[in-house]
Design a protein around this nucleic acid. Structure first.
Lengths: 211, 211
DNA sequence: GTCTATAGAAGGATAGAC
DNA sequence: GTCTATCCTTCTATAGAC
């Protein structure tokens, strides 16, 4: 498997991992243009020549790092587990996890970099979209279809409903957080946003026969 | 008025306007880091020294341009006019205008630049947030409150409902467009998204007594 | 105010020794 | 593979003439 994957360094080179770690931190924190190869080499504790021996160019290193980060960042199965309790409680818990994940520093930082550079590195946009929104829509859509099958929801288009639920979670706080406009979101605001999203979602999609 | 505003060049210098126009196009198209002062000077047809005579530094020029663009880009009063017809028709027309505006090349390009540089230029994030999301929420919230006053809606929190309506418009297409992931949104997709947003919005907020 | 020319610094990438 | 030292380009910003 590792013989095919062009990214994995045969898991053998320790310096390579140092470079990957340092570059990931710097690139996500400051963006492509603001990070020099000198800074990465310094931060990783290696020479620039070593850096170029592992990755042919700054573009290549950047694309490798960010693409990998997009695949690694999202943990949808964890966020999508919502069983047991009644539907509203399950949706609240699920919305809390998803929205809090959206608002994490690391998530926002990666999103900013990908948005900024998606024009010059189209593969970044694709990797983020597939790992994030597309996968989330699939998993949440499947869960909603399941609930519909159990008679708790009436959802004609599960993927669309999934998109709408997640979009409602982004109402209010998300732009402020993405643009770095103070004040930082509070837990109370998160609670309010999630509750409002669940309310409107259930008003539209709750099965009439269920509560 | 123009004596107070630090941005306006007393409307006197023709070269200054050339610089502003050229810089606006280049910065929004390629971002801060990828645009050099040489390129701006060349594109504006002036020398670099002239450029520095009008704007003290690249940072200053960039912040001026982008802040101005944020204020100028949004034309909410136009987008928010929705009178006459019945509520659903009005919301559909309003949603169409807003979503199409979101998906315009210029809007997306400006958003990408602001997201990318909001960490290093906090005033950009603030300017965009105030001119865009905050103003839109105020205007649409007022319109919704008006509709509620006329008995066509039941909206306990108009600004929140406004945020939710706009968030629903961003479901589906918006990430794809922001990240530049093909295929480009079609008019049919826009129609579907807007209709779905209006449906769920009215299911939650339509007054029971109105149709 | 506007130009030409250039200073001075920083960045990406490589040569050559080990 | 890894280092040191360096090349070459590009960039921001300025000096000085007009």
């Amino acid at each position: 498997m590792s013989a095919i994957d062009p990214v994995r360094p045969e898991a053998g080179s320790p310096k390579r991992q140092l470079i990957l770690d340092a570059a990931a931190i710097l690139f996500t924190a400051h963006g492509y243009g603001a990070v020099s190869m000198d800074a990465i080499a310094r931060s990783a504790g290696v020479s620039k020549a070593t850096l170029y021996a592992h990755f042919g160019s700054k573009d290549q290193l950047f694309a490798t790092i960010i693409t990998e980060a997009c695949h690694a960042m999202f943990d949808w199965p964890g966020a999508m587990s919502a069983d047991g309790a009644d539907l509203r409680t399950a949706l609240i818990a699920l919305g809390q996890r998803v929205l809090r994940f959206f608002l994490e520093d690391g998530t926002l930082a990666l999103y900013r970099v990908v948005v900024a550079e998606s024009a010059r590195f189209p593969e970044l946009g694709r990797a983020f979209y597939e790992s994030g929104p597309a996968t989330g829509r699939r998993l949440l859509g499947a869960w909603l279809a399941e609930q519909a099958g159990a008679g708790r929801l009436r959802v004609p288009d599960p993927p669309l409903a999934a998109e709408q639920f997640v979009a409602l979670l982004r109402a209010g706080l998300y732009f402020r957080a993405t643009l770095g406009v103070p004040p930082a979101p509070t837990q109370a605001e998160i609670d309010t946003t999630v509750a409002a999203a669940v309310d409107i979602f259930l008003a539209a999609y709750a099965h009439p026969r269920a509560g």
